[in-house]
Amino acid sequence: MLNAVTQGFLVGLSLIVAIGAQNAFVLKQGLKKQHIFWICLVCALSDSLLILSGVLGFAQIMIQYPAVVQISKFAGALFLIVYGAQHFYHSFKHSAVMQESSIQKQNLSELLLICLALTWLNPHVYLDTVVLIGTVSTQFAGQEMAFAAGAITASWLFFFSLGYAARWLQPVFTHSEAWKILDFLIGVVMWSIAVSLLI
């Protein structure tokens, strides 16, 4: 069982550490120190549900009904294009030095909706967590749930570490140029993922 948990943890961590739309969002909110706990919680819970779905056999349903992935692909690409454009706009917009007190506060419900969209409209998430983790879990006959527990643990550890460790970079982001560069890089990530979904 320990081997299954360890392997699940390593597989889960290897899939989640790649820079993606969801991770970039968590990083930025961590830097802004806005509703970090709730955002990390939503991301971790979403990943947990997706991982459990894969281990419990929903990967086969997705393979049989590829239209679900196709719909998610186009909806996700459209969302990422719009969201990326907003970041490009902010990266070129003139602003004063961004002190913590001057950062615009965003509504929690608005942020959670963006977080859910970045998670559930991204077909890469389904392919990684549902299909791939679900497929690998079949190698641990009788210990699939232990494998899932390891992958879920990796997800929770990663998101909360990313969200709360981001504040260590806060001194760098007292300069408006740092925020502009971050917004530009996030825009590049969003549009790159959108392009990869459409081609």
Rank of each mutant, 00 (worst) to 15 (best):
I114S: 07
G134P: 12
E110H: 04
T119Q: 10
C115H: 01
L112A: 01
D128Y: 03
L111K: 00
I114C: 05
C115K: 00
L118M: 10
T129V: 12
L127N: 12
H124Q: 14
I114A: 08
V125M: 13
L132G: 09
V131S: 06
L111Y: 05
E110V: 00
L108G: 02
I133K: 07
S109W: 02
H124W: 15
N107S: 06
Y126K: 13
N122A: 10
V136E: 11
N107V: 00
C115M: 03
N122Q: 11
L121Y: 02
E110C: 05
V136C: 05
L132E: 08
Y126I: 14
I114H: 08
E110Y: 05
A117I: 03
H124Y: 15
L108Q: 03
S137I: 02
G134R: 07
V125R: 06
L132Y: 14
L113N: 02
W120A: 11
W120M: 15
V130R: 10
I133Q: 11
D128A: 03
C115Q: 03
L127T: 08
N107Q: 06
D128M: 04
L121K: 04
L127A: 14
T135C: 02
V131C: 02
I133S: 06
Y126N: 15
S109T: 03
L127H: 08
D128H: 00
H124C: 14
N122P: 09
P123E: 15
I114V: 10
C115W: 01
L112E: 04
N107H: 01
Y126C: 15
S137M: 09
E110F: 05
L118A: 08
V130N: 10
I133W: 02
L121N: 05
V125S: 14
T135Q: 09
V125G: 06
C115N: 08
T119S: 13
S137Q: 09
L108D: 05
N122I: 08
P123C: 13
L111R: 00
V125I: 14
I114K: 05
D128P: 06
V125W: 06
L116F: 04
T129A: 15
V125A: 15
L113R: 03
T119N: 13
L116H: 02
V130E: 11
L111F: 06
S109Y: 04
V130P: 10
S109A: 05
L112W: 02
I133G: 08
L111P: 01
V136G: 00
T135E: 09
T135M: 12
L108V: 05
V125L: 10
P123M: 15
T119L: 13
V130F: 11
V130I: 15
L111T: 09
T135R: 07
L116C: 09
V131Q: 03
N107K: 01
S137F: 05
W120V: 10
V131D: 02
L121I: 04
N122K: 12
Y126P: 14
G134I: 11
I114W: 08
A117V: 02
G134A: 11
P123Y: 12
L132A: 14
S109R: 05
I133A: 08
L116R: 01
P123R: 13
Y126V: 13
N122H: 09
L108E: 07
L113I: 04
H124S: 14
A117Y: 12
G134L: 06
V130T: 04
W120L: 15
L113T: 00
L108S: 05
L121S: 00
T129S: 15
L116V: 01
N122F: 11
S109D: 00
L116Q: 01
L108Y: 00
L111W: 00
L118T: 03
H124G: 15
V131A: 06
I114L: 10
L118C: 07
